[in-house]
Design a protein around this nucleic acid. Structure first.
Length: 476
RNA sequence: GGCGCCGUACCCAAGUGGCAAGGGAGAGGUCUGCAAAACCUUUAUGCAGCGGUUCGAAUCCGCUCGGCGCCUCCA
């Protein structure tokens, strides 16, 4: 069974072949080189943005789960029109401004249990690599100069449009394309380098002072970090055109080799049926949701649980449903931990675990079909619960089951990750309350027993009476 | 106007030619002093609608209706 992922470039679900040459065993492949388009740090990212970043995280975790090694980069865009405007408005330097929002972004990633990637380059630290690309393009005569700014001429690059299938498109008439407010020969030509403007941050180059165009940074960073063709490039679907199309054009024109083998694009998060975006103002930031009391792992679960190529309509109710699904898993863990004695002979648990892991991999291998994978996972949970209810799960088997949960969670990142750690609960106090309640129940003083349970509930502690005695857990 | 995607139960969501996964919510039952958790049973002869192909269609084809995205900064 091979991992196949939909490739925007080919339009089909292509097998992942790191390095481009097929090998017998996964461990024989070179590390999978991945580049993900990161944020422009001019404000708080919204959870639509985070859908993509959580997807990136899921992708890298799943690749590791399948035995691949990975080498993953995500950029920080710290110079563009918006960051410059923001810094100017506040009267601080560009670096101060972007530094603030970069820190916030990194905190949010951590909150969502997103693993750090191997490389996190900044645009402003990649100027040399940009210059190299532009110089090569100039030597090949693909660049023209308009009032000091440099543009890529798509008319002089024959493969232009292969990613977004532009050759079959018509450009809508009457639309303005000169949003950069610079003059261009062809509306689809794009700026590689923008001439210095009064008061803006700029860099000295062989072709004059200025700052980078939008698309050049990704091409430059990929070249600088990976050197050659990379395996996977990810981003939101809105980046297919023009951003990724232009990356391909400048990189392949400059270096004469394939830029990226596998393009993966994540669909949009919708809210009330339309795209969540800053310009529409219909967005939630992560912090908005945390303030409303939703947990990061529920948000993560919700955003991860729908297939990445389907639009996902975001609702607060959806977070609640995700929360309930996670609680189902939490409850299983409580029950597993509570198993003390040997149960009656059960089935071959190792076999159940093997089939869980195999079924999960088969599901997710099919274009990262996590929904199907979660179905397999919840069937396993149900089977375990049934065994426990029938007293047919012993301690060693419970340990095996727990190991399986850990393996699945290495991909999901939602189970053994709790952020509501503000534990002002004293376990000794809880135990004494429970002891008092047990005594009360023994005396059939149920009024007092229920009183104690209510006191604990108000502290977020839930009691469960089992045959073996009373156990407790915290809520949420 | 061009390109593309989607429409499956009360909600979310797999399935893309052979008896409709899974999660949430609801109903009934078991256990419990009562709860909680769990288990058992139950909730689409039906997959936007209408035609067609086929022994057989949610799945393929055509049309219709509805929703969304990209074509412009955007994850």
């Amino acid at each position: 069974m091979a991992l196949r992922i939909h490739n925007t470039l080919t339009g089909t679900a292509d097998e992942l072949v790191p390095g481009g040459a097929r090998r017998e065993r996964i461990e024989d492949y070179p590390p999978v080189t991945i580049y993900s388009c990161g944020p422009t740090v001019y404000g708080y990212a919204h959870i639509g943005n985070f859908r993509t970043f959580i997807f990136n995280d899921f992708l890298r975790r799943y690749l590791k789960f399948r035995g691949y090694r990975i080498d993953h980069a995500m950029n920080i865009t710290d110079v563009d029109d918006k960051t410059i405007a923001g810094a100017t408005e506040e009267g601080i330097t560009l670096a101060e401004y972007t530094g603030r929002y970069t820190a916030i972004f990194l905190e949010d990633l951590k909150t969502l249990n997103i693993e750090p990637v191997e490389h996190m380059p900044k645009a402003t630290e990649s100027i040399e690599a940009m210059i190299d690309i532009i110089q090569r393009l100039r030597e090949k005569g693909i660049v023209y100069n308009k009032e000091g700014s440099l543009y890529f001429s798509i008319a002089r690059f024959e493969n232009y449009g292969k990613l977004s299938r532009l050759d079959t498109r018509e450009i809508k008439t009457g639309l303005r394309y000169d949003t950069d407010s610079y003059e261009k020969d062809d509306v689809r030509d794009f700026a590689l380098w923008k001439v210095e403007k009064e008061g803006e941050t700029s860099w000295e180059t062989p072709f004059g002072r200025g700052r980078p165009g939008w698309h050049i940074e990704c091409s430059a960073m990929i070249r600088r970090i990976f050197g050659t063709t990379i395996d996977i490039h990810t981003g939101g679907v809105d980046l297919i055109f023009p951003h990724h199309e232009n990356e391909i054009a400048q990189s392949e024109a400059a270096y004469g080799e394939q830029f990226v083998r596998h393009w993966i694009h994540v669909e949009h998060l919708l809210v009330n049926g339309s795209k969540m975006s800053k310009s529409l103002g219909n967005f939630y930031t992560l912090r908005d949701l945390l303030e409303k009391g939703y947990s990061p792992r529920s948000i993560r679960y919700l955003l991860i649980s729908a297939h990445y190529r389907k639009q996902l309509n975001f609702t607060l109710e959806g977070i609640g449903q995700a929360d309930q699904a996670l609680e189902r898993i939490d409850n299983l863990i409580v029950r597993l931990n509570d198993i003390r004695k040997d149960g009656r002979p059960g089935p071959n648990l190792q076999k159940m675990v093997d089939s869980l892991l195999l079924g999960f991999a088969e599901a997710v291998d099919d274009d990262l079909n996590i929904s199907k994978g979660l179905g397999v996972f919840f069937e396993f949970i149900h089977a375990l619960n049934t065994l426990i209810s029938n007293d047919r799960l012993n301690r060693p088997d419970a340990d095996l089951a727990m190991e399986a949960l850990v393996k699945i969670d290495a991909v999901l990142g939602v189970i053994f990750f709790k952020t509501t750690a503000k534990s002002d609960i004293d376990p000794a106090w809880v135990d004494s309350m429970i002891a008092e309640r047990i005594a009360a129940r023994k005396d059939r003083n149920f009024k007092r027993a229920d009183e104690i349970r209510t006191i604990l509930t108000e502290k977020g502690i839930i009691l469960e009476d089992t045959k073996e005695g009373t156990r407790w857990k915290t809520k949420g």
